[in-house]
Amino acid sequence: MRHPQGSTTPDEPLVVRLRELRERTGLSLAALAARTPYSKSAWHRYLTGTQRPPRPAVVALTRLAGADPAPVVALWEAAGDPPAPAPPEQRGRPRSRWLPLSALALLGTAAAVAAAVTVAARPGTPVPAVQTLLTGPRCHAYSCQGELPVASVCARDAQTKSTVTDSGYDVRLRYSPACGTAWSEVRVRSPRAREVSVRAGQDRLSASYAADDSTGYSSPMLAVRSPRGVEACAEVGGQLACTGLDVEEVDEG
């Protein structure tokens, strides 16, 4: 179930920071819509403070501006969602003791971990059962959209579905069955600035990395049902290379 997104005020630190990042990119609202999964009208609402942006949108804009997402995500988390007022017929009534679904999910996870620890403590029982519970993917499908594969643990079961090799770098289309996501990955053979992008239909996400960035090599993730029809690209030193699977192409690798 989707929760209503609260509105923000134009002078909030998050909105001010998002406007600064948009100015740094030099992109119009239409250009932002073309390079992210969010529409022109959605970006207008996010940047005017009339609607709270989703976390992946904040991360996508930050990366387009070549900035560190962590401080901006911290602003996003600090802004939070304002509490929704109770309907008139419920005001004054005692609060229910039912726990929200998120709390129940956490309790269920904690119980499962506790059970796994108990089982693992028995003689002859392997410990990796506990590690699997603790290190599984942190998102799935559209909750992963705009996230990076390593941070979300989606890279753990990633499969290379298609590859193109250039004299200075390799580009790979990567797919995570557990997360239901695909992304582009580039491996450069010498320090050079690079832009890595992934596209599926009208959805396109990209990330830019400076030459001295030795860790950034992947695009944000796109939520997809299959790696077929997804195109992975990288531009390095003014040269563009793309790879992908045609819709009718089957790859078991």
Rank of each mutant, 00 (worst) to 15 (best):
R52H: 14
R19P: 04
V188E: 07
W183D: 11
T8F: 05
A79W: 03
P53H: 12
T109W: 15
R93T: 15
P149Q: 05
V117W: 05
V127A: 08
Y209K: 00
A57K: 14
A103F: 04
L148P: 10
A158M: 09
L104Y: 03
T215W: 14
G6K: 11
E147R: 11
R174I: 08
V171N: 06
G168K: 04
A182L: 10
P88R: 06
L104G: 10
C233L: 06
V186A: 12
V196Y: 11
R63W: 03
C154I: 04
R63A: 15
G80C: 06
A67K: 02
V186Q: 07
A158N: 02
V196F: 09
A116E: 07
K40H: 07
P123K: 02
A114M: 00
P123R: 09
R45I: 06
R156G: 12
Q159D: 06
P227Y: 03
A121Q: 01
R35S: 14
E252I: 08
R52P: 01
P100A: 08
Q5G: 13
A116P: 07
P69I: 14
P82C: 04
P53C: 06
T109E: 08
A182R: 10
A105N: 04
S208M: 09
R19N: 10
H44M: 05
D81E: 15
S162Q: 12
A223R: 10
A207R: 07
S219L: 10
A67M: 07
V196E: 08
